[in-house]
Design a binder for these strands. Sequence first.
DNA 1: CAGGGTTCGTATGGGCTCATACAGTATGAG
DNA 2: CTCATACTGTATGAGCCCATACGAACCCTG
Lengths: 132, 132
Amino acid sequence: MATARQLRCYYDRHLAELDLNLSQASLLAYVAEFGPHTQTALAARMDLGRAATGTVIDQLEARGLLTRTPDPDDRRVWRIAPTPAATDVVCRIAAIDTVVRDTLRAGINRNERQELASVLVRLQENMAADQP
Amino acid sequence: MATARQLRCYYDRHLAELDLNLSQASLLAYVAEFGPHTQTALAARMDLGRAATGTVIDQLEARGLLTRTPDPDDRRVWRIAPTPAATDVVCRIAAIDTVVRDTLRAGINRNERQELASVLVRLQENMAADQP
DNA sequence: CAGGGTTCGTATGGGCTCATACAGTATGAG
DNA sequence: CTCATACTGTATGAGCCCATACGAACCCTG
């Protein structure tokens, strides 16, 4: 958990030059890569509550990086899409992500990374299996 | 990071029967095991800011589990010590911790756990080495 | 003794997230 | 069609944490 906290701070620090935090950057990058989604879909994808997702979208929309467009088929729903202004930011996010990942990978080989992921998944499964 | 979040929630859920969260339980258990400390020392040990540590101690003190005693040698400092009432709670915390750890360890052998810890430490080192 | 610099605990304001409750909308059974 | 149910996004209140700033107390140097 300490490592996770450091990780979040580390990403946040590197993203600070874009005035974004990790949640904002992740959501923006996801929308830019996979196209328009509803807020609920994004919330599920980002492991975030719907309310928190709405807040993140508010912030990105206020900065002109995202647009809310009414869904033609469902009037409850917004379709969240990136603006043209977002493409540059998304590129810079990707660049930062690449650098950060490379830094983190130092001294850790592919096999160890896979094993790490595997163990973490098993931990999650153990927790999920215990209390539904 | 998702695993860490789940872990915190998982511990919190198990500690809910004691009306404690993970920070409170950790701090209380630490003080109970290693005796009186200053708030700053506890903050460093718990990976928590001094202000947050003060809040946690406030809560535990209000429930009669901890006492603040003036330090005879340094009038700025409180000495944080467990009360007699805390011993029972500490035992129950330890019991919960044992159960949780056992649950989590299912399907993960000793070697894998050590490897996990090793990789996480290396990740932390990589982050620490990058930006002092 | 000063005097400045440091450290302690606390107060304050802010950020991020959640849980809950709500109004508007969609959907399916009758 | 009608109504109950489910779902969407939002508002609100709460919890937990941080960063900063502050007064009080300490320590070191001269």
